[in-house]
Computed example of a mutant assay.
Amino acid sequence: MEVFAAMRRVAHEFGFRHVTLFASTSPDEMLLSRIIVETTLPSSYVQEFDRRRLLRLCPIAPIVAGSVLPHCWSLDEPENIRGFAIPATMEELQRRHGMITSVAMALNSLDGDRFLLRFDGVRPRLTQVELNEIGMLVLHAFNVFDKLRRSARTTVVGPLSSRELEVVRWTAQGKTSAEIGRILSLSDHTVNAYMTNAIKKLDCVNRTQLVAKALRLRLIM
């Protein structure tokens, strides 16, 4: 929370209204609310975004994922300058919530987890100097966040293996054993075995209790 508070100050200093940290997810994820780690976006925006199922139409993640540098764009730019099309329904929603100019940056944890940090607001497009500066600030903040996250995970995970954590994390996102198996290239039987082990290790009785306990202990986000 302290790291995210620092990112809120960065957003303010650069003239942005909102900052959001997303966790990466599978391409078939449908809901924005499931991948938000922290955000200053109003709940009304997230709810309408999910009601319209706009996540599957969002062009940003694949573009940003291809670079280690922050990517900036504006709704007021022509499509040929911006470099990608934005669906009309998404543009209307973002304009209504004052999300005209945006910056997004892909971030990779040392343990392989992927995140995306995004700033949104009403201001001119960032200069290259500003992009460089905000990129360095984000990297420093994420480095602290990642150390704290991995330290907390190491402290409370106990006997859970990294593969068991993966299975629990995907279960928390509503995936079935068959879907998790396809994502992780495992058989249904193996996925269920990991799930059973995790249930026993965290002293739970079923998957629902396991996910709730894992979230409470911040084993997953």
Rank of each mutant, 00 (worst) to 15 (best):
R9M: 09
V3E: 10
D50G: 13
W73K: 08
E2P: 01
L137C: 05
G15P: 06
A65Y: 07
Q94H: 10
A61T: 08
I183F: 07
F84K: 00
D113G: 09
W73Q: 07
T154R: 15
K201F: 02
P59A: 08
L160R: 05
T101W: 07
Q128I: 13
D146F: 06
R163D: 07
I199F: 02
N206D: 14
P59R: 05
G83M: 10
N132T: 05
H71R: 09
K201G: 02
M99E: 12
V37Y: 02
K200C: 03
R153S: 11
S177L: 03
L116P: 06
R150V: 06
V103S: 06
S151E: 09
M195N: 02
R8C: 11
Q173P: 00
G181N: 02
P124R: 15
A193C: 01
I220D: 03
R153G: 05
R114N: 08
D50M: 14
V129S: 13
V46T: 09
M221E: 13
E179A: 14
L186A: 08
R125F: 07
Y194C: 00
K200G: 03
S26F: 02
H71L: 15
L219C: 02
F115E: 00
K175Y: 12
D113A: 15
Y194E: 01
E133W: 05
N108R: 15
I35N: 03
D28T: 13
A11H: 00
S33M: 09
S109A: 14
T127K: 15
N197Q: 08
R56L: 13
L31E: 10
M7Q: 07
E166H: 14
D203K: 00
G158N: 13
L107Y: 07
A214T: 02
R56S: 15
R52G: 04
V191K: 01
V167P: 14
R123K: 12
R96K: 15
A65E: 15
E77R: 01
L217A: 04
A141T: 04
Y194I: 01
G121F: 06
G121T: 14
S43F: 04
E79G: 00
L21F: 11
I81S: 07
L54H: 02
E77T: 02
R182C: 07
A152Y: 01
V144P: 00
F49D: 08
E130W: 04
F115D: 00
S102L: 10
G98D: 07
E38I: 01
T171A: 12
